[in-house]
Design a protein around this nucleic acid. Structure first.
Lengths: 247, 247
DNA sequence: GCAAAAGTGTTTTAGTTACACCCATGT
DNA sequence: ACATGGGTGTAACTAAAACACTTTTGC
């Protein structure tokens, strides 16, 4: 594996990257009751874009996605999952793309390569807001957006996010969602909120709690959230850091 | 859409296809109590290969997969699903591939293009054996293999099949498997057998039947399988041809 | 003869759903 | 004053799992 700290978007050229192919990461976090997506300024028309990049000749798409994630969040070993391939022949031949390339070509000589058709693999990553936000907030072009209130987006990136959301909803009965998004100690309400947002429906407080606890992945701590005097919320933890191994 | 009947493997060139990218289809059917995969002779060392191909410049990967499926099975509108991307940088740089290209280069001049790195999207298709076998059996290079007794395979195609199997197992609680694999009228035992193979465990006959029937997608017909005198198996049918729309 | 497969119901256990009250905090 | 959110338990219902016998056919 390369030294990731040395890599930036500018390191990609037509020579060292797989042609016509990219990866795009839907980086998802949970903060203040909302599911957030990390996007970057695209630079044209105030469009926002997913965090993506190209696949070097000596790495797999999964490795490229991990590299890109580390580049933008500082985290390695992040939970990351392929969810769909986007390959419409016209997906990158859009006005905003042409504008971008026109501008981009002035600083590098392979701008035309970017005008070629690209097929992109969509990945979603689940990260802990608190663990990445210091790193992220240093980069002025990166911002979090509520997944249900997306800004105008470059190319088909809004579609990619919607598909990621659908995939997560579909996977929820199968994989224990929440572990990757929450800090070590969390309130049951937060975990329930995450489920509610992806399932897009209200869940009964007590039934949810009973179900989660009897699944056995979450335990109640002998500790309550500070700052409240009356009925301070009890804190919970996931028992195992190896849940991702069941995927 | 092009005239599919005119297309063969030979129609692909470096000029008309997306570079370094392919699709591979794991075509799955059910016959005589076994899950079968359709493979072609690869021509070198008796290796077998998945049915795959390249993506033309004016089609999406999904369209390419459908085109390839129609080419090899005669069926359009087949149930088809992306399940994983295979992008190990070394996946196609294998001895059997070099041998193949050496042989292949003698008949077409872009053999070296085939030696480049390829990223492939894995699709699985579920088809009805009876509907495709007449078409398939005309092509001498195509054969069905028990998914649990695979022959020696080209490149990473065995891995691709294993991953397809895992994906189906994972999706089984979510999507009603079986509809795409069985003829209009079928025995409950056949449906159960399909579930048993993918889940890799025995299921209780009566509990399975009750569960399936109360899900509501399958109804009992007033008809029994012919050819048996005593306790001829009752036939069943799926009620709706639109189950795939729920995907 | 024996294994295999098909018909057929009941009981038990586990899981899911529905539902109400109390009290402090913040607006 | 009111809405919000947090603590707490039970009863009804639905779903899943375990389980046996009989008969014919095919080997």
């Amino acid at each position: 594996m390369k030294d990731l700290t040395k890599l930036t978007y500018e390191d990609h050229t037509a020579e060292n990257s797989h042609p016509g192919f990219s990866v795009d990461c839907v980086i998802i976090a949970f903060h203040k009751g909302k599911i957030k997506v990390l996007l970057r300024d695209f630079g044209i028309n105030n469009y926002k874009a997913l965090l993506g990049g190209f696949v070097f000749n000596d790495e797999s798409a999964d490795q490229a996605a991990h590299r890109i994630l580390e580049l933008y969040t500082g985290l390695s070993n992040i939970f990351l999952k392929q969810f769909a391939l986007f390959s419409d022949p016209n997906r990158t031949i859009m006005k905003q793309n042409l504008d971008y390339v026109a501008q981009y070509s002035s600083v590098r000589n392979d701008g035309k390569w970017l005008l070629r058709r690209f097929i992109t693999m969509g990945y979603f990553a689940l990260v802990r807001y608190d663990e990445v936000n210091d790193f992220v907030s240093e980069k002025k072009q990166l911002h979090w957006y509520d997944i249900n209130k997306l800004p105008a987006m470059y190319s088909d990136h809004e579609l990619i996010i919607k598909k990621a959301q659908e995939s997560i909803k579909l996977l929820m009965p199968i994989i224990p969602i929440g572990y990757e998004l929450l800090p070590e100690k969390f309130m049951m309400t937060e975990l329930r909120k995450i489920h509610e947002i992806f399932l897009n429906k209200k869940l009964d407080r007590r039934n949810f709690q009973r179900k989660i606890l009897q699944e056995g992945f979450v335990i109640q701590l002998d500790e309550r959230k500070e700052g409240k005097e009356y009925n301070a919320p009890i804190l919970y933890s996931f028992i195992s850091p190896d849940i991702k191994d069941t995927m």
